[in-house]
């Protein structure tokens, strides 16, 4: 074949068989890999940055803005957007910009608190159901199935109506008075949304627990005599954390949305504090003459929803181990 080959090339080389086992591509940890994938996902990064901007401005802008959310400036009623009032003013002469910023505090806090309550209930419920298994699991999941087939928004409304007075009373009379500054109808929303929308979380946690609980590392922990709580807390939850983070991230905008929806039909957070939903709902009546009053809160709702959804979708793609290549 090849004529001009150096005969010495035909010397055997020994002890080189290990080469094939070398791992060609560098290995990285789960979180590094997730972050690398997340960074590459442009929409997700846009979502993350937007969420950070919204949170920071909700926290810091009210600290130095010259107006307060309740201050009525005489002679400044119903002004369009200007340098002094970037979002304009409402019919009582209140600065809309600062009202939207306070609205951000309220709406974001609703999203966060409600999601955290969901998370707690969902993780406990789903974790117990999946971990105990058998009959208990069967009954608990049957209940979840029933809740799933029910229009939950109706029950949010129902609870809202039912719990209205007890909560108000609790904040008048008991030690909870210290929280009264938050406003009892805001607390009511936290509780109601938190109590109703945990079903999804419970299902996801249960699914994760079921698939994890028979894996070797859990068996090993059991064999060493670890208690059930320790196994759930130390082994199952850390492994199920990816889907849980994603579900929480996606629960935040849906809580914000639900509150806005409730405000729009008249049972959300009431004056003088206003969530974005309340602001939009109030503005709707004057849509013909003062459309900007509606535009800014509505735009804030949309941007926040989109940002959290992009973030959630990106996290899902980044954290889902099945997508690892």
């Amino acid at each position: 074949m090849q004529v001009q080959i150096d005969p010495s090339l035909f010397e055997p080389i020994r002890g080189r068989t290990d080469v094939a086992d070398e791992i060609v591509r560098p290995s990285i940890t789960y979180w590094q890999d997730a972050w690398r994938r997340f960074k590459k996902n442009k929409p997700a990064m846009i979502g993350l940055v937007t969420v950070i901007i919204i949170i920071l401005s909700a926290i810091f802008v009210p600290m130095f803005w010259p107006y307060d959310y309740a201050t009525q400036i005489r002679g400044h009623e119903n002004q369009g957007p200007s340098w002094e009032h970037p979002f304009g003013t409402d019919s009582l002469g209140r600065d809309l910009f600062i009202r939207v910023m306070y609205g951000a505090r309220i709406s974001l806090s609703i999203g966060l608190v409600a999601s955290l309550i969901n998370l707690t209930i969902g993780v406990l419920y789903g974790g117990i159901s999946g971990y105990v298994g058998g009959r208990v699991d069967n009954i608990m999941m049957r209940i979840v199935d029933i809740l799933y087939s029910v229009p939950l928004l109706l029950y949010v409304i129902l609870l809202q109506v039912v719990l209205e007075k007890p909560i108000e009373q609790a904040f008048e009379t008991s030690f909870l008075r210290v929280f009264k500054g938050i406003g009892s109808d805001l607390i009511l929303i936290y509780i109601v949304l938190g109590l109703v929308y945990w079903v999804n979380m419970a299902r996801i946690v249960r699914g994760q627990v079921l698939s994890l609980k028979n894996q070797e590392f859990v068996l090993a922990a059991k064999a060493q005599g670890a208690s059930a709580w320790r196994i759930i807390w130390k082994h199952l939850i850390p492994n199920a954390i990816g889907p849980i983070i994603v579900t929480v991230t996606l629960a935040i905008p849906s809580a914000i949305f639900t509150e806005a929806f409730l405000s729009f039909i008249g049972i959300g957070v009431s004056a003088p504090m206003a969530s974005w939903g309340t602001l939009a709902s109030d503005a709707y009546r004057g849509i013909r003459s003062y459309p900007y009053l509606l535009f800014f809160p509505a735009a804030c709702i949309c941007i926040t929803m989109i940002a959290f959804n992009l973030l959630g979708d990106g996290l899902r793609d980044a954290l889902d181990p099945h997508m690892r290549k």
């Binding site: 939009a280 949309c302 929803m305």
Partner: peptide
């Protein structure tokens, strides 16, 4: 579609009313 699943129905409705109605 991404806008569609994130924009609340009442916002969409008011936008539609404003542009196509008013």
């Amino acid at each position: 579609a991404t806008l569609g699943v994130t924009i609340p129905s009442f916002v969409l409705a008011t936008v539609l009313i404003y542009f196509f109605g008013v």
